[in-house]
Design a protein around this nucleic acid. Structure first.
Lengths: 153, 153
DNA sequence: CGATTTAGTTTATTTTAGTGAAATAAATCA
DNA sequence: TGATTTATTTCACTAAAATAAACTAAATCG
């Protein structure tokens, strides 16, 4: 970020490259699976939380129910998500991620590679890395919070 | 990534959280500046490479010339980019990022926070961190390359 | 110089994803 | 049970951003 981050402090410099690489990876995954950024956010939610109802997805993504129906349609058509009526409350729709081939391949490939990177270091080093990553995550969340808080959209 | 990345190996686990945090941060920046993901990609390119012509932007982003004209219009209107005719070849348009207030504030805030994180560690630890981050970036780029290569879009 | 090529813009059109509100159907309340 | 509430879908419409192709202007080739 030449003109943007100022001098090339190492921490910031490192962070910038990493951040760009992450974003580009996500864009590539989206392009590969033919899925939008918003749809990927929903898939990530399902990965993390497990099956959710359409309403929970609406709540979590900030979209209207109508938009969620459309999103589930798309993802179902793409074979990335399964839609079944909740037997306990048949108004509800239970949306769960399928272990779709292409998608899981992508993430397993990444997980394996990340695992390989971490395993190069000894115990103590791994602790440093884990600590660092944890703090970076905190920083990012804090900055994200600031951004969304100030704007009050 | 429950069903997707398999068991909770630490490296992958860490990576997932980090990746989500990065993506959310970028989304927040976009929302704050009122700029789309695609437009942010272009801004990042300008940050990294410095001023580019409209054609170079088209090449780099994979968009058509017409789309680039529209994008430059938007970014210029938002005060994030400057458009000037190249004096050497007056058909060409030289697009350069402005050091826009809001945007540079955001990234300087992040840079400072990242810098603070890194400075917590001693020399040796910082070397480990730098090494790790460098390798992760490589992994991400490699995986991204694979994804875009296979698909041949 | 005139013809051709190159860079970017314009315009008409398409695509995508969203909204808001009405409609449908199931559950719950009195 | 009938009335009401809740969950999702459908439908008509909007907005943003992309495309393809025609157009304009500048550079270069012969």
């Amino acid at each position: 970020m030449r003109g943007v981050t100022g001098e090339g402090h190492r921490g910031a410099e490192l962070g910038r490259e990493l951040s760009t690489a992450v974003v580009m990876f996500h864009e590539a995954v989206g392009a590969r699976l033919g899925v939008s950024a918003g749809d990927q956010r929903a898939l990530a939610l399902l990965d993390r939380r497990g099956p959710m109802s359409a309403g929970e997805l609406a709540e979590a993504t900030g979209l209207t129910p109508g938009a969620i129906t459309g999103m589930i349609d798309r993802l179902e058509r793409a074979g990335l998500v399964r839609r079944e009526t909740d037997p306990a409350d048949r108004r509800r729709v239970r949306v769960s991620g399928t272990g779709d081939g292409a998608r899981s391949e992508v993430f397993q490939g990444l997980a394996a590679a990340m695992e390989a990177v971490v395993s190069r270091y000894d115990e103590a080093e791994q602790r440093v890395i884990a600590d660092y990553v944890g703090r970076v995550v905190e920083v990012l969340r804090e900055q994200t919070r600031k951004l969304t808080a100030t704007h009050t959209r």
